[in-house]
Design a protein around this nucleic acid. Structure first.
Lengths: 283, 283
DNA sequence: TCGGATTACGTGCACCGTAATGATC
DNA sequence: GATCATTACGGTGCACGTAATCCGA
């Protein structure tokens, strides 16, 4: 068995062309590298270099060895990475959500139930979210539709109803309810991390402009200080019951009213039993 | 970069089940192995073992690491083998021959022309000999047909004519010439390393029995001391002109008279220029 | 009490760096 | 003289083995 650092040094030499340059790159002395290469030849029982008096070059064996060595080094690196990744995955729960509202609640619940675990979360409007769950990109997901029973373990977590938030002076401010298409053409303030809501808005209001806001605080500020229509939901209003000078009008589109499901792949069911037990016992 | 001997030790532990057994197998002390495994965990930044008070077991990370490590070790071993093999191939000429007679001559010529090289030779009746040449199993071949000009570099080396060797009392002993099928049904003494001749005899004389002899000396002895028919060739008779109490009758089959060609793959042409020059200048 | 793992401790040697040498441009 | 490789030499850190300790069956 030949130690890998010898191959590493060989590759460094191949990259640099001279022992001295390679030695510098490797932060070792030139004689040390020279000896290492002699040792490598000895252990391989093969010459790797053409040694001229004041120059050293790879011979055919050397060229071949470098080719293999590069491969071996890549192999080892990727191996180490994969082991670390496997370990990391075991100690983190990665949550994918189709919408933002439930994320803080679920994350804090997870970090309570699985203390010591790292919880990471991501909001995505990508309709392939459930597939990502199966692929292992997420261990847990919040979906706005009940996923396939045979592939997933899931339970309902909360409902959410979309509202348009209008200033009282807005021409539609006294409507009892509105369809999104009735609002098409107007300019909205919109949070950038709305997950699947974003797609819905753009589909139903193709002529509207959306002023995207990355920061929730900034968005709130703008809503409070402008006459631009925006969106809110019953969930949000429950969470933050501060009085507002806006009127909230329910959106009547069927898709504006959703039930969120928490889901994991069937094989992971046992891992998240505590979480599901919590939500099932609550309802 | 993690040294490969740590992975080797990990695999040994996985194979043995305890540190002490693995340490013995590796010819190191138990504490040394214990520390190595701690170091491996440190360098991987991952735990690999469940440590109970008086027992140590692979955890999930460990199992995965062992799987990868086995792979890496195989990889390195095969790499080393291939480099050595490549080197060896460069300093040996491997000759494949369809028949035995020319082998000593060609081998001695090769070792003269390419002093320092190892010459290995093999006799085979396999009609795919030329293909083996292209595959690199042989660098040089003696064929009994001129090979494809576009793929091979070749030149004629010698002719050979097959004879049946009969005792004077044999009913056919005064024939001027014979076809093999006229001899079918008889029992022959036959050398086992005849290459393609073997196939020819069995095809033309399907009802004959052949008493195969591994040793040339034994065969000669038997020929001298029995009345069984055997084979010889003009080449053999020229080489060994000792008088014999046998009669040699030429075999008239077209295939019983061959010209041998020495051949190498076109790309190797330059390597064997000296050899071809020798044979071409001779004719 | 024995077998197995880890910790403590002293030691040797493998490998390093510096210095010297040789060679080429 | 500058650059590059190899050899010589002296020093040191690191991994080893021995011994001691702890734990469990």
């Amino acid at each position: 068995m030949i130690e890998i650092h010898l191959f590493e040094q060989l590759v460094a030499f191949a990259d640099c062309g001279t022992l001295s340059a390679a030695a510098e790159k490797l932060h070792i002395s030139q004689p040390a590298l020279s000896r290492s290469m002699q040792r490598l030849e000895q252990e391989l029982e093969v010459t790797l270099f053409d040694r001229q008096k004041s120059r050293i070059l790879l011979n055919e064996n050397g060229e071949l060895a470098v080719k293999y060595a590069r491969n071996l080094l890549l192999q080892e690196n990727s191996m180490i990475e994969q082991i670390r990744e496997f370990d990391r995955k075991k100690r983190t729960i990665s949550l994918g959500s189709c919408a933002p509202v439930l994320v803080p609640e679920v994350v804090s619940l997870l970090s309570w139930l699985y203390s010591g675990m790292t919880i990471s979360s991501e909001i995505t409007g990508d309709p392939a979210l459930a597939d990502y769950l199966l692929e292992g990109r997420y261990q847990l997901a919040i979906l706005h539709e009940k996923p396939d029973e045979t592939l997933f373990c899931s339970c309902p977590v909360a409902d959410e109803q979309l509202y348009v938030s209008l200033p009282p002076v807005h021409p539609l401010a006294d409507a009892e309810g509105l369809y999104l298409r009735e609002l098409d053409g107007q300019t909205f303030l919109l949070y950038s991390q709305t997950g699947f809501w974003d797609k819905l808005c753009r589909r139903e209001m193709p002529s509207s402009r959306f002023l995207m806001q990355e920061e929730m605080e900034v968005l709130d500020e703008l809503v409070a200080n402008s006459a631009l229509p925006a969106f809110t939901t019953d969930y949000i209003m429950r969470q933050d019951p501060r009085p507002s000078d806006r009127v909230a009008i329910p959106v009547l589109d069927e898709e504006a009213s959703v039930t969120y499901y928490c889901a994991c792949p069937r094989p992971e069911q046992t891992r998240f039993r505590a979480l599901f037990r919590h939500y099932r016992s609550r309802s």
